[in-house]
């Protein structure tokens, strides 16, 4: 029987493809660990809570409610959205909440396993997979809530809604990829996660979350270049059964995301020993 051999050595040439291969293999090997960690975190989160999932929904709902109030009271004048405004606002803020959670997930998962990482050697990719499971769990409640709104506003989705699970995966993948790129730096400096939280708050207003893209002006240009615009819009329009705008932009982004995600995974893998050493 030949034994598995590990060599730890500095300064070897980096081979992107083979590293990506080992990274994906480790993610597969760590699938039970990932599931176990996700179940552990979800169970322990809700076992000590009465309102449970409610706390995850309250933030996006209250943002939407504020805008519904601003619009209905005439404080701000917004362009027509094509669907009942409350539905537009709720879909926007809930999708945005999923995106924000996706961006924060890799750093948060890694941060939470800091103690574990400095003591035990386990496939770190399992942390990302486990975070992804938790993300799916949390997102499913947001989507259930949206379905409830659809029934309430008597919006019947058409056949294109079947594409929604894929398009929402695109949204999550985009968030996770970006989150993975910043995680190594975020593990070293706390400033990173603060800066992200801060800037996302502003970026929400240059993305069609609580209002549609205006007909003209500087905001229209910004929103049309903003890569988050197609991610949010394609998802929302698929759910609501509207015409899909910016579809080619969406495909370009998703097409770029796959190789970028691979590179981000490799970067994450390389950075782990450095992070463990400096923490």
């Amino acid at each position: 029987m030949s034994l598995e051999t590990r060599i730890y050595q500095k300064g070897e040439r980096l081979k992107l493809v083979s590293l990506l291969g080992t990274s994906l293999r480790d993610m597969y090997k760590g699938r039970f660990l990932a599931k176990q960690l996700a179940v552990r975190d979800i169970k322990s989160k809700y076992r000590k809570s009465v309102l449970g999932i409610f706390w995850d929904l309250i933030a996006p709902l209250s943002t939407a409610l504020v805008w519904i109030f601003l619009r209905s009271s005439g404080t701000v004048a917004l362009d027509e959205t094509g669907v009942p405004y409350p539905l537009f606002a709720f879909t926007g803020t809930l999708l945005w909440a999923i995106l924000v959670e996706s961006i924060n997930m890799p750093l948060r998962s890694t941060q939470g396993a800091k103690g574990l990482m400095s003591k035990i050697n386990f496939p770190k990719e399992a942390l990302i997979l486990s975070g992804f499971y938790k993300l799916l769990f949390n997102s499913s409640f947001k989507i259930l809530l949206l379905i409830f709104f659809f029934i309430f506003y008597k919006v019947s989705p058409n056949i294109s809604a079947l594409w929604f699970p894929l398009s929402i995966l695109g949204l999550i993948l985009a968030g996770v990829t970006f989150g993975l790129f910043i995680t190594p730096f975020g593990m070293l400096y706390n400033d990173v996660s603060r800066a992200i939280t801060m800037s996302l708050r502003f970026i929400m207003y240059v993305t069609p979350v609580v209002y549609a893209i205006p007909q003209e002006g500087i905001m229209k240009t910004i929103m049309e270049y903003n890569p988050l615009t197609p991610l949010i819009l394609v998802n929302r329009h698929l759910m609501l059964g509207l015409d899909i705008p910016y579809l080619s932009y969406f495909f370009i982004i998703v097409g770029l995301l796959l190789p970028l995600f691979g590179i981000a995974l490799v970067l994450y893998r390389i950075s782990i020993p450095i992070i463990v050493e400096r923490n």
Binding site: R6, Y8, D41
Partner: peptide
Amino acid sequence: GLINPDHGKVTLRGRVGALIDLGAGFNPI
């Protein structure tokens, strides 16, 4: 394998087990 050496080489053959931290991954509740 938690951190990398700066110089030199470590070769390990076979499965590695570590009794460094007992009860890693425990959640108190």
